[in-house]
Design a protein around this nucleic acid. Structure first.
Length: 583
RNA sequence: CGGGAUUUAGCUCAGCUUGGUAGAGCGCUUGAUUUGGGAUCAAGAGGUCACAGGUUCAAAUCCUGUAAUCCCGACCA
C-alpha cells in the first residue's frame, strides 16, 4: 500500500481520554477512532491486524473440525427468557424495541441462538459431535467501558460451541479446543498463560481462561512457584487449616480462655479503625459480611485481614445470585448499623465462615449494638457456625493447593475462555438427540471464546516501546515498511518504486512510504505504526546499498539489492520466533 | 448506580477569578528556503466557546438545568 494514499491518521499528541499505553498507541498510530464510549471504528491498519488474527483463529478452529457460521446479533427477548438469562444478564444487555414494541437484545453471546438452532436441526447421535463457531460483533452495556478496546461495549469475538453425546465426548471437545487455543496464542506471538477459572453455578471441573500477562489486566492470577498450577484468584483454592489448629468444644475449657467482654467502640466504620481502637491486629478481628443469596440473608464471617470471595460464597451456597445486603436490610435484620454486626446471639439467619475463623481465639467482633464490639471472642464457645468453607480470596503468603509451595500473583488480560457448559442450555431449550436405543438425551455442550479486538490491544500492551507499537510478525498489518528517505531525490524515488514492485512480486506485504515528508517524520511515523521490518532507501542507495532495520531490536543491516530479499526472509524467520516479553 | 473532573479550531490546551469584537502550539492550505529522526520563514483557511434556559445594555466568562466523555468506587461493615 502506498502511504501517500493510505488512510493512516497519525497524531503527535497524546489523546486526552486515553491513559493506558496500548490505547494511546492505537489512537496515535492511526488504528482506531472512538465514536462513543466503548465504541470504536477500526481504520485500515487495524482492520488488517484484525483480519490476521481472525485468519489464525479460523485455521485452528477448522483444524479441529469446527465449522464457521454467522449468527444474528439481533435476538428476541423470548429466547433469553427461556434460559433465564434475560434477567441474569440484566443491565449488561443492550436492549431495543422494534416498531411493534417487541423487545430485542443485541447479543452479548450466542448460547441461546446456537442451542435453539441445533435443537431444531440435529435430532440423532449420528450428527454428533458438532463444533460450530463464528466471529462476530458482540454487545455488552458495560457498567464502565474503559481502556479502549480492552473493555468496550461493542467488540469482536470468536465464539465456538461444541455439542456432544455425553461428558466423555465433551471432554474430548474441550481439550481439543484447549490445545487449539494454545496453538492460536502461540502463533499470535503472545506471552500467555492458561489458568483455572471460576465455573460458577454451571459446574464442571474444567474451565480455563487464557491470560495475557500485563500490569493493566483487570484480573489477578495466582500461580505456583514450583508446579504448574495457575488460577484466577476468583477461583484459586485456599487450603483448609491443619486440623490441630482448629478450635474444638472439648478442648476449650482446658485452655482457660478469658470470658467474652463488651467494649465501647464509638463511630468506627472499618476493620482498620476497629483494630487500632482495640489495640488488636486486623487478623484478630472477625469481619461480618451480610449478603443476600437469592433474597435470603446470610452472615459471612471472614478474618479481618482477608477478603471475602463473592464467587466462592455463591458457589458454597448454591445460589443463583449473591449481592451485598443494603444498609436498610442490615438494620432490619440485626437492629444495628453496618460495622457493628456480629454472629453472637443471632438466630434464624444462616451463618457461614471461612476456614480461617475456625482457628481464631480471643478475637473481636461486632456486638449487634451501635458503637459496641465484643473482645475475647472464641468461635464455637461464643457462637456456632452452620458451615466452614473456603470463602476468601487467595493472597500473598498463601500456598499452592496442589503442592504447598508459595503462590505468586500477577495481573492478566483475559483473551480467551474455554468452558464446559454441560446441559444447562440444552435442558432449558430442549436440545435433545436420539441415541442408538431411540432414547432422547440432552446434548452436552461447551462454549469457547476469544476476544479478537481485545487480542489486538493486548498484543500492543505486551509489545511496545517509548516510540510506538512493535507488532509480532504474525499479526502485523504489513511485514515490511519501505521508506524512501528523500522523495525529491529522483534516484531514490525510482529505486523505491522498483523495490516496492520487487518485494510485492516476491510475496511481501509492504507499506511503502512514498510521501513527500521529511525523513524524520517518516521514521517517527514508522516507529509509531510498528511494522516489524523496515527497509530504507537513502543516500547509500546511490552506491547500491539499502538499510534494513528490525523494529524490535533496533539492529540495522546495510545490504546490496541482491542480498536484500534473502536477508529479509531470514529476519522474518527470526522475528517470528520472538515472543513478546512478559510485562 | 455513588463520588470526582472535563467539555473553547482537526489535536493538546490557554482565556473564565474581575462580563465588553475568540487565542496559542501542533496539524491543514499556498509560496520560498530546507531535506536521515516530528525543519525555518512568510501568507492563509478554520470556532453556534457541548446543549437549553436565565441574569445583564452586553455572557466562552455569572446562575439553573440537561447531555456527553474520562477517572475512582460499587466485597472488605
Amino acid at each position: 500500500m502506498r502511504q501517500s494514499q493510505a488512510f493512516i491518521p497519525t497524531m503527535r499528541e497524546v489523546p486526552r481520554d486515553a491513559d493506558v499505553v496500548s490505547h494511546q498507541l492505537l489512537l496515535r498510530a492511526g488504528y482506531i477512532r472512538q465514536l462513543s464510549s466503548g465504541v470504536y471504528s477500526y481504520l485500515p491498519l487495524a482492520y488488517r491486524v484484525l483480519n490476521k488474527i481472525m485468519r489464525i483463529v479460523q485455521e485452528e478452529m477448522d483444524a479441529i473440525g469446527g465449522q464457521a457460521v454467522l449468527l444474528p446479533a439481533l435476538q428476541p427477548q423470548e429466547l433469553w427468557q427461556a434460559t433465564g438469562r434475560w434477567d441474569d444478564y440484566g443491565p449488561l444487555m443492550m436492549k431495543l424495541k422494534d416498531r411493534h414494541e417487541r423487545l430485542f437484545a443485541l447479543g452479548p453471546t450466542h448460547e441461546e441462538v446456537i442451542t435453539a438452532l441445533v435443537r431444531d436441526e440435529v435430532k440423532t447421535y449420528k450428527r454428533l459431535p458438532l463444533i460450530l463457531y463464528q466471529i462476530q460483533t458482540k454487545y455488552r452495556d458495560e457498567y464502565r467501558p474503559r481502556f479502549g478496546l480492552l473493555r468496550g461495549r461493542e467488540f469482536i469475538m470468536k465464539d465456538a460451541y461444541s455439542f456432544d453425546r455425553d461428558e466423555e465426548g465433551l471432554d474430548q471437545s474441550y481439550w481439543a479446543m484447549y490445545h487449539a487455543y494454545e496453538r492460536i496464542f502461540q502463533r499470535l506471538g503472545l506471552s500467555f498463560r492458561a489458568v483455572e477459572a471460576d465455573s460458577g453455578a454451571i459446574g464442571g471441573s474444567h474451565n480455563h481462561e487464557f491470560m495475557v500477562l500485563s500490569s493493566v489486566g483487570e484480573d489477578t492470577i495466582a500461580y505456583c512457584s514450583a508446579c504448574d498450577y495457575a488460577a484466577n484468584v476468583e477461583r484459586c483454592e485456599v487450603s483448609p487449616p491443619k486440623p490441630d489448629t482448629v478450635i474444638r468444644d472439648d478442648v476449650l475449657d482446658a485452655e482457660e480462655l478469658p470470658p467474652r467482654k463488651e467494649v465501647p467502640t464509638p463511630g468506627i466504620r472499618t476493620v482498620a479503625e476497629q483494630a487500632r481502637m482495640l489495640g488488636l491486629k486486623e487478623a484478630d478481628i472477625i469481619k461480618n459480611v451480610v449478603v443476600m443469596a437469592d433474597g435470603e440473608p446470610v452472615l459471612v464471617l471472614i478474618r479481618g485481614d482477608h477478603q471475602m470471595n463473592e464467587v466462592k460464597v455463591k458457589n458454597v451456597l448454591g445460589a443463583r445470585q449473591v449481592e451485598m445486603a443494603s444498609e436498610e436490610d442490615i438494620r432490619r435484620l440485626f437492629q444495628t448499623s453496618p460495622g457493628f454486626v456480629g454472629p453472637i446471639g443471632i438466630t434464624g439467619i444462616k451463618i457461614i465462615a471461612d476456614w480461617a475463623i475456625s482457628t481464631m481465639r480471643r478475637a473481636s467482633t461486632g456486638a449487634n449494638r451501635d458503637d459496641w464490639h465484643y473482645i475475647e471472642v472464641n468461635p464455637e464457645r461464643d457462637f456456632k457456625v452452620d458451615l466452614y468453607a473456603d470463602l476468601r480470596v487467595a493472597m500473598h503468603g498463601d500456598r499452592c493447593p496442589r503442592c504447598d509451595a508459595p503462590l505468586q500473583f500477577t495481573q492478566g488480560i483475559e483473551v480467551g475462555h474455554v468452558f464446559k457448559l454441560g446441559s444447562k442450555y440444552s435442558r432449558a431449550l430442549g436440545a435433545t438427540y436420539l441415541d442408538e436405543e431411540g432414547i432422547a438425551r440432552e446434548m452436552i455442550m461447551g462454549s469457547y471464546g476469544i476476544g479478537i479486538s481485545r487480542v489486538m490491544q493486548a498484543a500492543i500492551e505486551q509489545s511496545h516501546d517509548a516510540e510506538g507499537i512493535i507488532w509480532p510478525m504474525a499479526i502485523a498489518p504489513f511485514e515490511v515498511h519501505l521508506i524512501v528517505a528523500s522523495e525529491q531525490d529522483e534516484g531514490q524515488r525510482s529505486l523505491g518504486e522498483a523495490l516496492y514492485a520487487e518485494l510485492r512480486d516476491s510475496g511481501w506485504e509492504v507499506l511503502y512510504d512514498d510521501r513527500s515528508e521529511r525523513a524524520g517524520v517518516k521514521f517517527k511515523d514508522a516507529d509509531l505504526i510498528g511494522i516489524p521490518l523496515r527497509v530504507v532507501v537513502g543516500k547509500d542507495s546511490a552506491q547500491g546499498l539499502f538499510e534494513i532495520k528490525v523494529r524490535k531490536t533496533g539492529q540495522t543491516y546495510k545490504v546490496s539489492r541482491n542480498e536484500l530479499e534473502p536477508l529479509l526472509r531470514n529476519l522474518k524467520h527470526d522475528v517470528s520466533a520472538l515472543v513478546a516479553d512478559e510485562d
